[in-house]
Design a protein around this nucleic acid. Sequence first.
DNA 1: CGAAACTTGATAACAATTCTCATTTTATTT
DNA 2: AAATAAAATGAGAATTGTTATCAAGTTTCG
Lengths: 137, 137
Amino acid sequence: MRIVIKFRAKMNYSKQRENILNTLKENVVHPTAEYLYDILKKENSNISLATLYRNLNQLAENGIIKKIDGLESSSHYDHNTHEHYHFICDNCKKVYDISADVAPNLVKKAQEETGFTITNSDIVFHGICNNCKNKGE
Amino acid sequence: MRIVIKFRAKMNYSKQRENILNTLKENVVHPTAEYLYDILKKENSNISLATLYRNLNQLAENGIIKKIDGLESSSHYDHNTHEHYHFICDNCKKVYDISADVAPNLVKKAQEETGFTITNSDIVFHGICNNCKNKGE
DNA sequence: CGAAACTTGATAACAATTCTCATTTTATTT
DNA sequence: AAATAAAATGAGAATTGTTATCAAGTTTCG
């Protein structure tokens, strides 16, 4: 079973990375890269957009921050519109269906907790599918 | 309270849309637009990529198919790495936190159902937040 | 039929993100 | 502290997925 684990280069200290992490912690939660960039530009003389993205990815890969986004790049389309969720294999990238039973009354509970009007819920699981676990592909 | 509901133009019949929908139904589940485009190009003399995207969006807006993607365009970053979920207000686009309690044992249940190794789960709710409901903004 | 509304293809435009590469920092070894 | 290797940076080009534009073709319905 050959499952590729992302190689983690050692992280050296860097002023820019420190700035990015602090800015992320001290400001609005869940900012986009663009939002962070604007703040960083003001406070911190100059930083490259590439540096920002590079560091956000690195921090996320190392579990220091979390990147919030459903799928990786492109959208997928599904003709099955019944309530159900999805699992994406990080190895083969296939998208599997997961029954809605795994989270009963999900919307109802979330509405009760927040008072928001909730029209939709999506769950995306990530991991390794059985095929990849067995075949090591 | 002024909540903008997307205007739905009437859908006339169109050969291309029919082809797209059939291709989506008769093939691999959850394809990307690119995947569909390749099939359609082969089977169906010519179709424009723009037409494909236009129709996929239209079909999704009318609930005939489902578009699977977590957030809209750009990723958001979160320094809170504890298990919790997110709600995106379709009106003001703010991202709110939702406690993990709304889906107890989520990963465990999904693992039991599938046998997959699940490393991560993301839930994204959509709807209208209280602020927007009250202020009508 | 004939007008109004809808759809199409081709291509330009766009936004978010990643890549390239020469230079600079940081860490490690002597 | 000098030499060397490894990692980080900035600037901008490049890539990717998707949407906008617009003139021409279709569908709908009175």
